[in-house]
Each structure stands twice: as C-alpha cells, then as structure tokens.
C-alpha cells in the first residue's frame, strides 16, 4: 500500500469539491467517522502509547503494577537474548523477502496472461490463503516428521532429517513454510499490477522486435515498481512482526533457534510474566516496523514523479 500516493489523491479531491460546491451545501459531519476513529483509537492508538508506559513498570499480568523507571530497558538492552532475537528477525525478514519476491513476481506475471488454463491454476494457487496459520503449522509438522512424514513416501535418506529439530535448519524450514503461506497473496498483487500494464506498451515492444524475455525486463518489470514497493512493504513488515505460524510450528525452538522478536516478546510477557520487559521489546518492534513502513512509502513517493510522466 503506497501511503503517500493515496494522500495526494485525497487532497485534490476535497479541494475540487470546495471550489465547485456552493457554501451552503455542507459535507457530512465528522460524527460519521467518529465510531471508527474512537474504536480504532482505543485498540490501535492508545496501546501504541500504552506500550511505552508499560515498559516503565513491573507487572506480572495479574497483580499490582509498580514503577520500574528504566530498569526494564536496562535489563532488556543488556541481555544477549534480545540481540539474538533482533538478529534472527532481520535474517528471517530478509530471507523471506528474497524467497517470496521472485516467485510471486513470476507467478503473478504468468497468471496475468489471459488464457483458460492460467485462470484455473490461479484458483488453485490461492487455496493456501484459506488455511489458518495454526492449520498450516500442524500440517507441515506432520509432513516434516522425520519418521512418518515425507521420508516414508520416497524412502530417500536426505528427507528423513529432523527438519524442525535441527537448530541449523529450523529457521530455513520456517521461512519455507511462511513462503508457502504468503506467496499466493503476493502473487495476487503482482497479477493485478501486471494486468494494469497498457497493452500498447507490449505492442510497441513487439514492433521493435523484443521477445518475451526482453519484454519482461524492459516493459513488465519497470511498470510493476509500485506493486513491487507495495508488496515488499507488506512482506517486510509482515515478516518482521509474524507470530502465529512460528509459535505453533516451533515455539521458538529448538533451543532459541527460531525465537524471533515477536515470539520473544510474547514469551517474555505472557510465559515469563515479565510484562514490563515484554513491553520494551514491543516498543522496539513498533519502532522498527513504523520506520520500515514509512521509509518504504517515502521511497515510493520519491520515485513517483518520474513514473507519472510515462503514463
């Protein structure tokens, strides 16, 4: 979602309304938006401030709170576990992006072609989107079981590894399963983006003698840069904050091999009952997420000017 792109569309629209409409025709009252604003404010914006406040108290989640000052911050920032979780999250985020982006892009462009069999494939590709993270984690746990899973199907020694029990492998297995879960959604974005590329551009490229591969690199890819930024933003922020599947699939294990920042925050707050320290981790998470999202949408608006000229 390109944030700035939408803002710029909204503002001229209301300017236009203001100049063409006589003054006595008033717009709807703000009360119409109030319920949504209040509702989102209570559960979205208040917790954003609340998480900073809670990082300054000692609280076990049930009993009374007591003031802690910066003690939680000192604890969290000196613990090696924090840096381990941050590092894992960064690695997870980057590898997820590297795996999912090329596949989604190619599948999306492929599905954008209008032929019957591609439409049928499209319907089937999206089936993983329907499953809950808990369901996916349970299915892959069974499938990856070293004794009764895939290894039993092919009798290949290499498949009977303890995929989720090996600390060197577990993170990459989680990345693979997450890719399986989210590639359909990003494929959908790229498919939509590719369908909006004007056919005239391809016609011109064909007349110039460009083949399928050159058309892909010189027409399709440059035209998809906004989809690329939207998809990458959702993918990076999504994997930075992803919790559900990792929790059910590995619970952070083996050891702490997949204990990424969101999971580390949950386990610190809700399992170790250190809500204050958990909140410190949550602040780190919000901060990184917001910087990432705003930075990427800034990138989108920075490059906007040159894009529009071509259209």
């Amino acid at each position: 979602m390109s944030i700035t792109q939408r803002e710029e569309r909204a503002v001229p629209a209301s300017d236009r309304d203001r100049t063409t409409r006589p003054a006595h025709r008033s717009g709807p009252s703000v009360w119409m938006a109030m319920p949504a604003l209040v509702f989102f404010g209570i559960f979205g914006l208040v917790p954003l401030g609340g998480v900073v406040a809670l990082s300054l108290v000692n609280w076990d989640g049930i009993g009374e709170m007591s003031w802690a000052g910066l003690a939680n911050w000192a604890t969290v920032l000196t613990e090696p576990a924090t840096y381990h979780a941050i590092w894992l999250s960064i690695e997870f985020m980057v590898v997820c992006w590297l795996v999912q982006t090329p596949i989604s892009l190619l599948l999306g462009v492929f599905l954008a072609g209008r032929s019957r069999y591609r439409a049928v494939l499209g319907v089937l590709y999206f089936v993983p989107m329907l499953l809950s993270a808990a369901a996916i984690a349970i299915a892959f746990k069974a499938l990856l079981d070293p004794n009764f899973g895939m290894s039993l199907a092919f009798g290949i020694e290499a498949l009977s590894q303890d995929w989720l029990g090996d600390p060197d492998l577990a993170l990459y297995v989680v990345i693979g399963v997450v890719a399986w879960q989210f590639i359909p959604f990003h494929t959908l974005l790229y498919q939509a983006g590719a369908r909006q590329i004007p056919a005239a551009l391809y016609e011109a490229a064909t007349i110039d003698g460009a083949g399928t591969v050159r058309q892909f690199f010189h027409v399709t890819l440059p035209q998809l840069r906004y989809t690329f930024i939207t998809s990458s933003t959702l993918m990076l922020v999504g994997s930075l904050t992803y919790f559900d599947l990792v929790f059910v699939l590995t619970g952070g294990g083996p050891g702490d091999a997949t204990r990424m920042l969101p999971l580390h925050m949950y386990l610190t707050g809700f399992s170790a009952n250190e809500m204050g320290e958990g909140s410190v981790l949550a602040v780190l998470l919000v901060f990184t997420g917001l910087v990432l999202a705003l930075g990427l949408s800034g990138l989108a608006s920075f490059r906007k000017g040159s894009q529009m000229e071509g259209m």
Binding site: S26, L285, V286
Partner: peptide, 29 residues
C-alpha cells in the same frame, strides 16, 4: 465526501493505522 480539513486528517489516521503492527500492541490490549 467530507469537505473540511478533518476528512483529510481522518484519512491520514487510517493510513498511519495500516502501519501499526497488531502483534506489538498485545500487552496493552
């Protein structure tokens, strides 16, 4: 359909809201 500054601000609040990760707010929620 709103005409004043408020409708633009409302829009901005929700755009900003898109960037708030739900996971990070679980303790205050």
């Amino acid at each position: 359909r709103g005409t004043g500054r408020l409708s633009g601000m409302t829009h901005k609040v929700f755009l900003l809201g898109l960037a708030i990760p739900l996971q990070a707010t679980i303790i205050p929620v």
